[in-house]
Design a protein around this nucleic acid. Structure first.
Length: 774
DNA sequence: GAGTTTGAAACT
DNA sequence: CAGTTTCAAACTC
């Protein structure tokens, strides 16, 4: 809004206090701290990456956030760009949402000064190194920043971090941080140096700390001059946030960076670790924080519709993209805030691969679900997951690309494009969320679930579960089965599948897995997997995937989605006990024959059969493929096999599928699988390999004729199923993944096919971690 | 949007 | 392990 005086910036603390903005900021402050925390942590981790974008992130995010709800992606992106780039024109933003406007305004004002920065950041973020950040700009940041403070601070911080990682490091210990924060705040207030701090005040309450920090941040922003300060503050804030979060969450301890202890956190870490250990540490921290924050947010949300803005903001910030959906819907403000968060996340992710990690973790974090699940999850879910992919992306994607970070920030989706992971995770929430916002921004209502987005969404995409009696803690729940927390899109009742109830969710998962180790394993194995299992060439039978357990259809003739095999786009296998199977993808009968044929045929396409759904399935398949590919590398549950198939699975940990494998040739399959895996891996490694698969899949899909020829025979063989099941767990629950796939393609194609892919990969990779928990 | 159908998941 | 019930998605109207 108004950025009254920037001049105050340096005087910062004192000035900020005076200015209305300052007061506003104070209100918001709580959130900021969290963000800062994220940023700080994440930043630290990412510093190497190129966080420069961060500033952009901040700026854009706000904008986006605000905008998103109401404006379409494109619009957002435009706005962000125009506004930001334009220098000072804030007007656009403000109009969008009052709250958002405020933040935005602040941001914008700040941005005006920093515009250059933001623009550059946005665009370049990825490429530009941390240094890019425009400390100066931030510095310039007027008092107005206050509203933006966090952003500005963060960006600054980031920069600072880049420059002054040392400082951040110092902050690491939460206690110290707390102290620091406190002290810093004090200092700020006093006009003292922000930077350091020391450890003087541990005793302060977190709330106080937060407030103070926020204040400091604001001041800091204004004062941006001292990067150090910014750094310290940010770190402090982050820590404080984390601390707060931990408290809120009940973690109790922040322990050093965060809360290593928390199960969820741990889980998160694991996930993160999957990607980059080095980064992981940092990320992990971030992730933890985020988790806690999310939880908190969730709680808040749940607890009441009316949370003080400040509080909400904090929670939102903490949360990150995922929950954003909820937040947005819940509160207008939150939207803005959320956006910010998302932006940050995005920025981070966009900036580097690491970003992915973060995002993923979030998604995973609580639940411990797989990214896969998300990705793989059924269409609807998929959509959510890929929110961006399906709906959002399209429009936004391009923009995103163009803008780079802005889009990301603005939209989760865009982000997703780059950093699909998060979205996915969020995916659900976040992913869909943003989409909704963009598309239907209007729909602030929580119901947005459907994100359908224009793009293509069937509307399904966004859909999530609607459990009423299962509390979303049973496999009946798609979300739960997919390893994803329920989010806004869900219309479930009495849902316990939320980060808040992480413990319950995890325990329930364990119970279910104990009962059925394969419960969370992907139901359908992708062709690649199948190929492995069967020994077929992956290339040849890309499309063919088999349902691990096999369906038991009686009336649907395996021609409807009731049939898991059909839904998964795979032919029925020997494992199936279906009656009158007419699965267009392949039938059991033919299996035996097929198996041989398949062996012989290598070429044949799989079954692509289905006309109707070919497209969808195609998309799904593709998507799956992608994930798989990437996933594979990540973490293999099993020794070898694990690598390939596993994708992201959550439950990958479990042994190969056992249960129902009728065919029983698991052993053989196993060996095969290994071989196949290797092959696959090699291909994957190539990188291009994936694409190839995609293409193949598409081709198959396109050509119906193939389907029949191959399908019956082909079925990729159930025998291998076992093997398949083992390594590849693709999906989580019933729902198969198809839908998600489509989105992927679009996304990749649109914007960053490459990047998107990577992102997805990353996410997936991260996901594997999830499983581990138990 | 409500009601029905379906088959997986859960239970016994 | 088989049979039954419960459940929520998929489908239909």
């Amino acid at each position: 809004m108004d950025t009254p005086d920037r001049a105050a910036a340096q005087p910062a603390a004192s000035r900020a206090e005076d200015s209305p903005v300052f007061s506003f900021i104070n209100n918001l402050s709580p959130i900021e701290p969290l963000k800062s925390a994220y940023n700080a942590n994440s930043l630290q981790g990412y510093q190497s990456i190129n966080i420069t974008s961060i500033s952009s992130i901040f700026t854009s995010p706000h904008d986006n956030a605000h905008k998103e709800p109401r404006l379409p992606k494109s619009s957002l992106g435009e706005i962000s760009e125009s506004e930001v780039c334009a220098d000072g024109k804030n007007t656009n933003k403000p109009t969008k949402s009052s709250n958002a406007v405020r933040l935005f305004a602040c941001t914008s004002t700040v941005t005006q000064e920093t515009h250059t920065v933001t623009c550059s950041d946005v665009v370049d973020p990825p490429t530009v190194p941390c240094d890019l950040a425009q400390p100066a700009q931030f510095d310039n940041g007027s008092p107005d920043h206050n509203t933006t403070p966090c952003h500005g601070v963060r960006s600054d911080l980031k920069q600072d971090k880049c420059r002054k990682q040392d400082v951040v490091q110092t902050v690491k210990s939460t206690v110290e941080k707390r102290k620091c924060l406190f002290s810093t705040e004090i200092q700020l207030l006093d006009g003292g140096q922000p930077v350091n701090d020391n450890n003087e005040v541990l005793g302060c309450e977190w709330s106080d700390l937060i407030a103070t920090t926020s204040g400091e941040l604001l001041a800091f922003d204004s004062t941006m001059d001292d990067h150090h300060r910014g750094m310290h503050l940010a770190a402090k804030n982050a820590e404080s946030c984390g601390y707060l979060l931990s408290k809120l969450a009940g973690d109790g301890e922040i322990s050093e960076r965060a809360y290593p202890n928390a199960s969820g956190q741990v889980y998160y870490q694991e996930l993160v670790m999957g990607e980059d250990q080095t980064e992981n540490a940092q990320i992990f921290q971030d992730g933890q924080q985020t988790i806690s924050t999310e939880e908190i947010q969730d709680n808040i949300y749940e607890a009441n519709g009316c949370i003080p803005l400040d509080y909400k903001v904090e929670s939102q910030q903490q949360r990150g993209v995922r929950r954003r959906c909820l937040v947005f819907e819940a509160a207008g403000f939150s939207n803005s805030v959320v956006q910010k968060e998302s932006v940050e996340d995005l920025s981070v992710s966009t900036c580097k691969g690491k970003g992915h990690v973060q995002t993923q973790p979030r998604g995973l974090r609580g639940i411990g679900l797989h990214l896969n699940a998300l990705a793989l999850t059924p269409k609807g879910k998929m959509a959510c997951q890929d929110p961006m992919a399906s709906a959002l992306l399209p429009s936004s994607a391009s923009e995103k690309d163009a803008h780079g970070k802005l889009l990301c920030a603005g939209e989760n989706f865009t982000h997703s494009g780059g950093e699909l992971l998060e979205f996915p995770m969020d995916d659900c929430s976040s992913g869909g969320f943003p989409l909704n916002d963009h598309v239907s921004s209007q729909s602030v209502s929580p119901q947005k679930k459907r994100r359908k987005t224009d793009n293509g969404d069937d509307g399904e995409a966004c859909k999530r579960c609607s459990c009423k009696k299962s509390k979303c803690l049973k496999l009946y729940c798609e979300c739960f089965a997919a390893g994803v927390y329920c989010s806004e899109p869900c219309s479930c009742q009495g849902c316990l599948n939320k980060p808040i109830h992480e413990e319950i969710v995890l325990s329930t998962r364990k119970q279910i897995e104990f009962r059925n180790p394969l419960a969370f394993a992907p139901k359908v194995i992708r062709m690649s997997d199948a190929g492995l299992e069967t020994g077929e060439d992956p290339n040849n039978t890309p499309a063919s995937a088999r349902h691990k357990r096999g369906c038991n259809c009686k009336k649907s003739s395996c021609l409807k989605k009731y049939c898991e095999c059909y839904q998964g786009g795979v032919g029925c296998s020997s494992n199936c006990r279906c009656e009158s199977c007419k699965n267009t993808f392949g039938r059991r009968d033919a299996e035996t024959e097929l198996t041989e044929e398949m062996k012989q045929e290598g070429e044949q396409t799989e079954n692509s059969g289905k006309e109707k759904e070919n497209d969808q399935q195609k998309a799904n398949v593709q998507s799956e493929d992608h994930p798989l590919v990437e996933l594979v590398p990540i973490t293999p549950p099993f020794d070898l096999s694990s690598s390939l198939l596993k994708l992201p699975n959550f439950s990958s940990a479990k042994p190969p599928r056992p249960s129902k494998a009728r065919s029983g040739s698991s052993r053989s399959s196993a060996s095969k699988a290994t071989t196949t895996l290797q092959s696959c891996k090699s291909s994957k490694a190539a990188g291009s390999g994936i694409d190839e698969e995609m293409l193949d899949i598409l081709k198959e899909a396109d050509s119906p004729s193939r389907v029949k020829t191959t399908s019956p025979n082909r079925k990729r063989v159930s025998p291998p199923h076992n093997a398949l099941s083992i390594s590849p767990n693709r999906k989580g629950g019933r729902k198969l993944i198809l839908k998600s796939i489509p989105s992927f393609p679009s996304l990749t194609g649109d914007s960053n096919s490459g990047s998107a892919m990577n992102n997805t990969d990353n996410t997936f990779s991260a996901s594997p971690l999830a499983l581990g928990p138990s």
